[in-house]
Design a protein around this nucleic acid. Structure first.
Lengths: 288, 288
DNA sequence: ACCTGAACACCGTTCAAGT
DNA sequence: ACCTGAACACCGTTCAAGT
């Protein structure tokens, strides 16, 4: 019998988080290996209170841990990608049977959702020592949040794929959302336009980070630098007859972007886009 | 022996399109069932010229077709989603064995890439009777392109997932890219800022369409309307103790958006975002 | 409370064989 | 030229059982 409380009576599960799961100790330290919360449905079915106080029991055979599982999941996703991630592979890395993991997690999807939120801890509002709230200029804070978000997406290319599938509402992604809402409020935009502004800015970053992250990963698995891959790809396109006329138009833009590595060019494009967004918010605020 | 020309000598395959595949007759009509091109590598290995002229041979046992395969793939992806799509299921729908499909297609990934480009035919520059080029105002055309792109992403939620994984360069997505480049050129932005502007606009639409499409799909599989699902989800969040303070801040924005269904609200947000982007492009142009 | 092993119902893809 | 069937090496997950 697994811990899978009552999977049958769960017709509409939108997220691990909306089903009574505790925020995993609020910090990803190696605390109590407590598995999942009793689903908060019927307190009568509760077990004898597992390890009161939440202290780590040292006499455990495998030393398995929700936190250890999530951490290893993130590591595996980073190196091998989402497509090749499997419960069996993960279990192998953890030195246990595939089914051991299922004691701590209901499904693979739930585990991925946990990994997703874990990674949001790297974002500006959560990182220590960087009080971006300190800056009085909203545009400086907006830029900081955008750069932080982008960095996460690029570091973990699987994140964008997952965000689309689980509309994430874990504790850490929540913190980020709140920081975003505060910045947008400080722009002076009237409330009815704030949602649109949030979308324009962070959906852009999401899209940008998606392309960038997947490109980076592709280069890595091909064993090439980004510049090598880029020139190789351009070469391929140039040889294919159907693609004539495409580069003809694109070349103009590419040439105008001037000197620099692929990464430098992309950096500039990102800044330009942020300039446009900030200018647009300013213009729309003044107008309203 | 399958048609898989020389899969072993293909270490860096970025795309079906960059490997000599013909544009499938340029239009997805039921033309010659020709499978894949001979990979354009060594013309000596060519078969006796398959059905000269490209006319459809009526004596075929199953009537299988690259076009029929791609069309059915799109249909299946639309109804069941990317996660549950399988070659075996597809074959079943087509009334053939799983392996029959592999005569026309090298891998599942290649097939998905073909489906991806197929769907770009629904976009403005390809659709007939809508000469968006006619409008002299760049912002009107930009809005049209943005709306068209968004519509595709919402109609086919699997598209955003795939675009991230295969940086798509099929003939139809190429047509869309060209239309985008033309609009941005007409904004009067200096060339070195155009790439940033393209990103700001269409990465935003990509992100927006991703969330919207997946949300719609989620509602559909749950058998609820978008409004039902929305209020249900809000209710779940409100009950969870960790989420207090989240809605507190979000409520302000939600309330300010005023009356309307979820879809109407989203529509307004999208327009506001486009307003911001267009205003930003204008401001940046004037400034430069 | 935590972990295992065997089993089920799936995958994508290869290969040899049919017509 | 086109299609099949069996087989291989995988999946996620259930279930009954161990300690």
């Amino acid at each position: 019998m697994t811990r899978a409380a009552d999977r049958s009576k769960r017709p509409l599960r939108t997220s691990v988080w909306l089903d009574g799961r505790p925020p995993a100790g609020d910090a990803p330290r190696g605390d109590a290996p407590r598995g999942k919360a009793p689903e908060g449905r019927a307190p009568e079915g509760r077990a004898p209170a597992p390890t009161p106080g939440g202290a780590r029991r040292p006499d455990q055979p495998t030393g398995l841990d929700l936190h250890r599982i999530v951490t290893e999941t993130v590591a595996l996703l980073d190196t091998d990608g989402l497509a090749s991630f499997s419960m069996r592979k993960l279990a192998g890395r953890l030195g246990v049977t595939a089914m051991s993991v299922y004691w701590y997690v209901d499904t693979k999807d739930d585990l991925l959702e946990l990994a997703l939120d874990e990674v949001f801890a790297e974002l500006p509002p959560n990182t220590e020592g960087e009080p971006i709230e300190a800056s009085p200029d909203w545009w400086a804070r907006l830029r900081a949040l955008a750069h932080g978000y982008r960095a996460v997406l690029v570091r973990h290319p699987w994140v964008t794929t997952l965000i689309g599938n689980y509309l994430n509402v874990g504790p850490r992604s929540k913190a980020f959302s709140l920081a975003v809402q505060r910045v947008i409020r400080d722009t002076g935009l009237p409330p009815e336009r704030r949602m649109g502004a949030i979308g324009a800015t962070f959906q852009f970053v999401y899209g940008f980070g998606t392309i960038e992250g997947h490109f980076k990963q592709r280069c890595a698995t091909a064993g090439m630098t980004q510049d090598e891959y880029y020139t190789e790809a351009i070469g391929s396109i140039r040889q294919s007859p159907e693609m004539a006329g495409y580069l003809e138009s694109a070349d103009e833009i590419l040439a105008a972007r001037g000197e620099g590595t692929v990464e430098e060019l992309r950096e500039r494009d990102f800044e330009v886009a942020l300039d446009i967004l900030i200018a647009g918010i300013e213009a729309t605020t003044a107008r309203g």
